[in-house]
Design a protein around this nucleic acid. Structure first.
Length: 263
DNA sequence: ATGGTCGCCATGCGA
C-alpha cells in the first residue's frame, strides 16, 4: 500500500491545523503541498512534530513555496529541474525514498498561474515545456515515479464548468492545454482521468462570486504516475468536502492509492 | 463588462 496526497493549501500557516487533520485522517506516505507562502523559519514545524513525517521544503517569502512530507527516509532531494524559467521562485521539489512498493521518486510542482501579464503567461508556457522535457527524461527509468501539483491548467472541456465562456481565459487557453497534454501524452498518466473517464470533478473553485456554491470550478490539480507505477494503481479520491471547511483553501486535497493487490 | 474574495503583511499585488 502506497498513498500519495497533493494539496495547494494557500498558506501553510493559516491551514496548518487542516493539514494536520489530513495527515491524521488519511496517513498518506507522501503529502505534496503547494503555495506555502512563507519562509522556512516560520514554517509551522511544531504542528506536525508528533506525526513522524520527514519534511522537505522549498520556501519563499509571501509567494509560492512547495513541500513534501514523507513517512519514509529521504534518500535524494532536488530543488530544481533543468531549464526552469522560474528558478528563483519556489515551485519545484523532488525526493526519492524506499517504500513498501519499491524505490519511489516523488515530485511536487506549482506551475505559474500566468494571468498577471503576457510576460508571465509566456513564462508559464516555457515552464510547462521545460517540465515536460525533464519528465520525459526520467519517466522510463526503472523506478516508480509520481508527480503531483497545481498545474494551473485544465486540459479538457470536461475539466471546466463552462468551456465556451472560458476559452480565452488563462488556465484554459489552447496553448496551455496543448502544453499540459504534452506532459500527459509522454509516458505519464493522469490518474484521476484514467479512473474516471467521464466525470466532471473540480479541484479548485475561486473564492469570488460564490463559485463553489455554484460548482463553477476547474480541475487543475493532478497526480500523474509513470507506467511502472500505474500497474499498482488502486483508487483516486478528490476530498471536495475540504472546500466546505471554515477558512478553506480554494483548492482541495487529492489522493492516489497504490497496492500490490491492484494487479 | 465589471467585480467579486482571500492571504501576504501593512499596501497593493497575486491568484
Amino acid at each position: 500500500m502506497l498513498q500519495i496526497s497533493c494539496w495547494n493549501v494557500n498558506s501553510v500557516k493559516i491551514r496548518a491545523d487542516s493539514v494536520k487533520k489530513l495527515l491524521q485522517q488519511y496517513s498518506p506516505d507522501f503529502l505534496l503541498l503547494q503555495e506555502l507562502k512563507c519562509e522556512e523559519n516560520v514554517f509551522p514545524f511544531e504542528v506536525f512534530e508528533d506525526l513522524n513525517y520527514n519534511i522537505s521544503l522549498k520556501c519563499q517569502k509571501s509567494y509560492n513555496g512547495v513541500a513534501i512530507l514523507s513517512k519514509h527516509i529521504i534518500d535524494e532531494i532536488k530543488y530544481d529541474f533543468p531549464n526552469n524559467p522560474c528558478s528563483d521562485e519556489a515551485r519545484f521539489i523532488e525526493v526519492a525514498s524506499q517504500t513498501a512498493l519499491g524505490y519511489c521518486r516523488v515530485i511536487c510542482v506549482y506551475v505559474p498561474n500566468g494571468g498577471i501579464s503576457k510576460e508571465r503567461y509566456d513564462v508559464k508556457l516555457e515552464f510547462l515545456k521545460a517540465l515536460k522535457e525533464y519528465l520525459v527524461s526520467i519517466a522510463n527509468n526503472d523506478e516508480f515515479l509520481i508527480i503531483g501539483g497545481d498545474f494551473n491548467v485544465a486540459p479538457e472541456e470536461l475539466d471546466v464548468h463552462d468551456a465556451t465562456s472560458l476559452m480565452d481565459e488563462v488556465c484554459f487557453t489552447p496553448p496551455e492545454r496543448r502544453a499540459m497534454r504534452a506532459i500527459l501524452n509522454n509516458n505519464l498518466v493522469d490518474l484521476f482521468r484514467i479512473k474516471n473517464p467521464n466525470l466532471k470533478q473540480f479541484t479548485w473553485w475561486d473564492y469570488r462570486a460564490g463559485a463553489y456554491q455554484k460548482n463553477q470550478g476547474m480541475r487543475i490539480d493532478f497526480l500523474l504516475s509513470n507506467y511502472k507505477l500505474l500497474k499498482y494503481f488502486d483508487s483516486f479520491n478528490v476530498a471536495h468536502n475540504f472546500r466546505s471547511n471554515d477558512r478553506p483553501s480554494d483548492h482541495v486535497p487529492i489522493f492516489a492509492s497504490f497496492s500490490l493487490n491492484a494487479l
